[in-house]
């Protein structure tokens, strides 16, 4: 259990680091291409932007796991533990509802690009809308298809070769990340229910850094 936990932590952390690193290098390479070689990686911008979306959307569920999402804790810090627990439970329900609606929306958005059917029903999925036209043919703007994805055209485009990467690929992150997000919010909700945690947020973006900085400062003062 702890091994699996550590392993997924590591995987998610490396993915976050990797995506950010690749975004930076890709953009940097494009500058070099332009100024040193008077050339251009035309798809660099679009590819970087997709990596950006993958980074944040996949990272969002990791942030839930680590209770790292930003929030306002002024009120809950004033509340007694009973109220605090109730508020945390309400928060958990809100988060689960959010992830649920977004998962439905993400599926509805992505499915046609995979020639699948979106769900019917406004608030809740009530079956599939089989009148929807497939959009497997829909391509991104600039990104060429890497050779190892050539099989996509057979699956999604009746064998017609793609000139550009089909949208089904970059948008896949939506249903995947929202499913993960729902899963992590359900876990967090359970942790609140069983009393393991009493809030799902941090109050500001620099909480970890501040802790470290405070420690450094304290050490300096003690040395004085």
């Amino acid at each position: 259990m702890t091994f699996a936990k550590r392993w997924t932590d590591r995987l998610e952390e490396n993915l976050i680091a990797f995506l950010l690193g690749m975004m930076t290098l890709m953009t940097f390479a494009n500058v070099v291409a332009r100024y040193v070689f008077n050339s251009n990686i035309f798809y660099a911008l679009e590819l970087t932007v997709f990596m950006f979306a993958w980074l944040v959307l996949l990272g969002a569920s990791y942030a839930v796991k680590k209770s790292a999402h930003l929030g306002v804790d002024a009120i809950i810090n004033m509340a007694g533990s009973r109220i605090r627990r109730i508020l945390a439970l309400i928060s958990a329900v809100a988060c689960i509802a959010y992830a649920f609606f977004l998962l439905k929306g993400a599926w509805d958005y992505w499915a046609p690009f995979a020639n699948l059917y979106p769900t019917e029903g406004r608030w809740f999925p009530l079956g599939f809308d089989e009148t929807t036209r497939g959009r497997g043919w829909y391509e991104t703007q600039d990104i060429p298809v890497p050779f190892f994805l050539n099989w996509l055209s057979d699956v999604f485009n009746d064998g017609d070769a793609y000139e550009k990467l089909p949208k089904v690929v970059p948008y896949l992150v939506l249903p995947v990340s929202m499913a993960l997000l729902l899963f992590r919010f359900l876990q967090a909700g359970w942790a609140v229910w069983t009393g393991k945690i009493d809030m799902m947020i941090v109050s500001h973006e620099a909480e970890d850094d501040v802790e470290e900085a405070a420690k450094r400062l304290k050490e300096q003062e003690e040395a004085m």
Binding site: N40, F42, E163
Partner: peptide, 17 residues
């Protein structure tokens, strides 16, 4: 647009996004 990219390349220019 692939056409506009090709057009710029035909002029010996470098197309930029």
């Amino acid at each position: 647009s692939d056409v506009l990219v090709a057009q710029m390349e035909a002029m010996g220019a470098s197309p930029q996004k």
